[in-house]
């Protein structure tokens, strides 16, 4: 596994796909903010989104329209459901630990390596880990994640990886890495 060196933000290349992707996301956010479909609002929104997309597409978007292919959208929906289930489980886990009088915790910091190379995919993985049962991402140096685990079952990186990250990483690999 080679550790691909990340490119500085301002030196990334812009491309039509990235431009369209940024424009679409910005326009959807504009619609959410104004929540009106009058022509004047829509035209202003189009112009503002165009200007923002012109300047920030290379920073905002990692891989352009590639992410919005139909088969990837199915994986997004699958990821969403896996994530929501983990979030609800995490909350009942926290509730159980907080309410029980003797605080059943055995915390520690473990590490494991991720296979993802895309930096945005790593961000999504780190955020998901923070919101799933008993884990909190402290730092990611290169491809190594350092995770605070509230109930450590094993110090071994492989076991920790299997328990914490595998279910998310499998889907993220399909979305961002092929």
């Amino acid at each position: 596994m080679t550790n691909k060196k990340s490119i500085p933000l301002l030196k990334r290349k812009s491309s039509p796909g990235k431009f369209i992707y940024t424009f679409l996301i910005m326009f959807i956010i504009w619609l959410g903010f104004t929540t009106s479909f009058e022509p004047a609002e829509l035209i202003t929104g189009v112009f503002v989104s165009l200007i923002i997309a012109l300047f920030t597409d290379r920073i905002f978007s990692c891989c352009g329209m590639r992410v919005l292919m139909p088969h990837k959208i199915i994986y997004f929906i699958q990821y969403f459901f896996v994530f929501i289930m983990a979030l609800i489980k995490a909350n009942f886990d926290v509730a159980r630990r907080v309410i029980s009088p003797d605080l059943p915790i055995n915390p520690g910091i473990v590490k494991f390596k991720t296979k993802l190379t895309n930096s945005f995919a790593r961000l999504v993985l780190a955020n998901s880990i923070t919101l799933t049962p008993g884990t909190l991402t402290i730092d990611a140096i290169g491809n190594t994640f350092y995770v605070h685990w509230i109930d450590v079952t094993s110090e071994e990186p492989e076991v920790a990886y299997k328990e914490i990250a595998e279910s998310f990483e499998k889907i993220l690999m399909k979305i961002y890495e092929d």
Binding site: L87, I88, A90, N91, V94, A95, R97, V98, L103, I105, P107, T130, L131, G134, T135, L136, I138, H148, I150
Partner: peptide, 16 residues
């Protein structure tokens, strides 16, 4: 008992 476990409880429960 300590900052990190507090962060865990605080973040997850308050987010959901």
């Amino acid at each position: 008992p300590d900052l990190y476990t507090r962060l865990q409880a605080g973040t997850k429960a308050s987010t959901l």
